[in-house]
Design a binder for these strands. Structure first.
Lengths: 124, 124
DNA sequence: CAGAATCCAATCAGATACTG
DNA sequence: CAGTATCTGATTGGATTCTG
């Protein structure tokens, strides 16, 4: 499992591919899309309404990125007019714990962060 | 299937302040700065060398953001030429677990993601 | 050394119009 | 409904120059 006997302090580094994946998955709209789809599958315009001020363009881009990375599945029903449902994939659900952890962290530390901001803004 | 009080589906939502904080802390360069400073305090140019291709401008911006949000502390020694050391704060260290979790997730799922990308790119 | 200031190219986001 | 296409104004990122 380990090539060499590394010290505990030698934690894995963020490499370009990892960084890139996080970028695609943690960006502004993707997080909110994932959050919505974790709750239930939804259609395009449902998502649009559920996520406050996302434009159609940004939502489309976020969905395509998530689909490409295997986080979200696009299910088309060829009716007239056609219906498209987006749903989270098994791979996508592995992100849910992480999302919760992120949200938990912001909730716990928001007050401290706001104090830090006030201090910083005052002294400058 | 669900208890009184909060339904299981009623998970906390990402609100604007939370989203904004995550943006400031999870962006491309900030993650790598935090990773570096979690290992040891470093000076400006040390960080610059440690983080492959960051420009001075981007590094400065990331450090200012992290400082403003209380994640990083800037320690100035008024020598000639002056020395500036950046170090992680206690609040900043609360992010470390999250960073590890993020990195762990990418490591575990990278292969699946790459397969998903190939599938997507092929069919389009 | 540790930046600030400036200029410029490239990217992005919003609005609008159109389509199967 | 679920998008695509296009135009445009704003924001970003890199390169360069300068400074205490």
């Amino acid at each position: 499992m380990q090539e060499t006997g590394l010290a505990a302090s030698e934690r894995p580094r963020i490499t370009a591919p990892h960084r890139e994946l996080l970028d695609q998955v943690l960006d502004k709209w993707s997080l909110q899309v994932l959050e919505e789809l974790c709750e239930q599958p939804q259609r395009f315009n449902e998502l649009r309404r559920a996520i406050p001020v996302v434009t159609q363009k940004s939502l489309t881009a976020a969905l395509r990125r998530l689909e490409r990375n295997g986080m979200v599945e696009r299910v088309v029903t060829s009716t007239r007019p056609l219906a498209v449902q987006y749903r989270i994939t098994p791979l996508g659900t592995t992100l849910q714990g992480l999302l919760d952890a992120l949200l938990c962290w912001t909730t716990v530390n928001m007050a401290d962060v706001e104090r830090a901001r006030e201090r910083y803004d005052d002294e400058v």
